[in-house]
Amino acid sequence: MHPEMERAKARYQAQETPEELSLAVRAAIREGDRLRKRRRTVRRSLATALASCACFVLLVNGSPSFAQAVYDVPVLGGLARIFTVTEYAVNDREHIIDVRLPALENTGHTELEQKVNQEISTRIQSVIDAAETRAREAREAYVATGGDPETYMPVIIDVDYEVKCQNDQYLSFVVTETEVRASAYTEFYTYNIDLETGKEITLRDLLGPNWMETVNAQVAEQIAQRAQDPENTYWTTEQGGFQGIREDQPFYLNGEGLPVVVFEKYELGPGSMGSQEFVIQTEQ
């Protein structure tokens, strides 16, 4: 190789690498694995749900008494309650968009269903519109500043949902919007519905009037516990870390029906920590 290029390469390779690189890499691998599993599980469970629905229709048509019986089985009855209302993908020069939007049905509370479905679709549509505008502007700016339009990397927008808890009493699901540009950023919206009353559940409903104290104590304890692992770095309260939960802190219900409060990326620690979730024990 050309001797000057050798020198340039040596200078390039002499760039110092920070000590925490391998920790950061490992954390990112864990996060990537987690997202990958989630994608696969959601796909698989959706396939199962579709397969069950197919049988369902077949048997219902075949036997009226079976149809009667099946409505008494909570799990099968539950299948009808949340479904994908919109699914589409756009793939062009400006953006790659992948959307799977949920909607509710058969909750027994029509008004609530309409309200929630309306809210999900307006909220997500405005998020997608804004993301599309940003994508277009970014591309125009790229081309205007001399970038070759052929090499522009499209913005990736991914909307998906995950059902967290579904039983006779509760229905809890999280809708996420991920936009990958400078760095991946995920916004999420949680929905928790009490199927008996037809209302959205609050942490106060689950934990009583002292819910804030209860949650704060348990989160602080779990942070202290997780901080024992040297791979976890939480900011201290003075550094802007955990300050107590907000009135509108997002949460969802896990499979056992326990509330899980969620803190966004950067809220409690550096970006490498990702978003943080804490299961809160209720008194019962």
Partner: peptide
């Protein structure tokens, strides 16, 4: 560091 992490997360998930 952020760029490397985001690239890893994106690559593994896809």
């Amino acid at each position: 560091l952020d760029v490397v992490q985001e690239a890893i997360v994106k690559a593994l998930s896809k």
